[in-house]
């Protein structure tokens, strides 16, 4: 059931920020609404006390994807449909395009925004692992201040971020990766569409002389939030890019996840499957490159 709230749709960022800073603590930013509206319906405590919804969808300039020399900028109102159809994203960030294609249904992708996905910060947010391996930064604005922060630092714990009450995430900034970095995104759900991820993984890898020169690994759904696995990356660098290493990495990933989450009701299924699917993913990325 919807709580009683006021709704306002400012036409520019400045007035949105003004309204936000003037309002007390019960204001929420509304973009696609695909988390907030169902949140209302299930009586989620995160949303039920909302007194003001500030809809940023009508703010001009927030719904564009822009290419610069070294990076690409994704506005706060860019939807998953826009993302998966964007030539720029498909060219430079294929993992992100792939993740975007697998989210929800056509209707959800037409409304849901990438920024909303990680501001909500559910453990299963599909855009997070790709954004993490691409070293995405985000720009945050309040009435008096503009700041940039890496996505990894922004995400604190499930459903919690570093966003302050008076701030709005305005854009994502992603550096163009070096072309030698090849990778893939993997998602396992209970069905092949409109599925909440049970496992999501993103990998970027660069090999040289059959050795792993650079690797970036991020997980979602199996960790409390989308997480970059730096220790694992460090362990992998310099190792031979072969099945034995990939198995070893998969085992390390299994151990790491077990260490983070402990045994859960789903572990008996998820942990072996995580290791197997991660191994498959590494094999696939490595084979694609050859």
């Amino acid at each position: 059931m919807n709580p009683e709230f006021n709704y306002i749709a400012p036409l520019n960022l400045n007035s949105a920020l003004k309204i936000l800073s003037a309002s007390k603590s019960r204001a929420k930013i509304l973009a696609g609404g695909t988390d907030i509206i169902p949140g209302f319906h299930i009586g989620s405590k995160r949303f039920s006390s909302t007194e003001l919804l500030i809809d940023i969808k009508r703010i001009r300039g927030l719904d564009t994807i822009k290419e610069y020399k070294n990076f690409v900028e994704i506005g706060a109102c860019v939807t998953f449909s826009q993302l998966s159809e964007s030539e720029i994203i498909r060219k430079y960030f294929p993992l992100l395009a792939k993740a975007a294609e697998t989210i929800g249904s056509v209707q959800i992708r037409n409304r849901a925004t990438v920024v909303g996905n990680f501001v909500n910060n559910a453990p299963c947010a599909d855009s997070v692992p790709p954004l993490l391996v691409y070293d995405a930064k985000i720009q945050i604005q309040s009435l008096n201040r503009k700041r940039e922060i890496s996505l990894q630092k922004f995400l604190i714990k499930s459903y919690t971020t570093a966003l302050k009450k008076n701030e709005i995430v305005t854009k994502i900034l992603i550096p163009k990766p070096e072309p030698e970095l090849k990778g893939d995104f993997y998602k396992l759900g209970r069905r092949r569409a409109v599925a909440i991820s049970r496992i999501s993984l993103a990998v970027l890898m660069k090999t040289k002389n059959s050795l792993i020169e650079e690797i970036r690994i991020a997980s979602g759904a199996v960790t409390p939030i989308g997480t970059r696995l730096y220790e694992l990356e460090k362990f992998a660098r310099g190792k031979a890019a072969n099945s034995d290493t990939f198995k070893e990495l998969s085992i390390q990933l299994g151990k790491k996840v077990l260490e983070i989450t402990g045994l859960r009701w789903s572990s008996e299924y998820k942990l072996p499957v995580l290791q197997q699917t991660f191994y498959q993913l590494l094999e696939k990325v490595s084979r694609d490159e050859i």
Binding site: D244, K247, E248, G254, E268, L271
Partner: peptide
């Protein structure tokens, strides 16, 4: 084969348990 008791099973795989793509 490991359905009996989760604690009996080490959920971390050994290398020979990985399946060829």
């Amino acid at each position: 084969e490991f359905k009996e008791n989760i604690l009996k099973r080490n959920l971390i795989l050994s290398k020979n348990e990985f399946i060829n793509p």
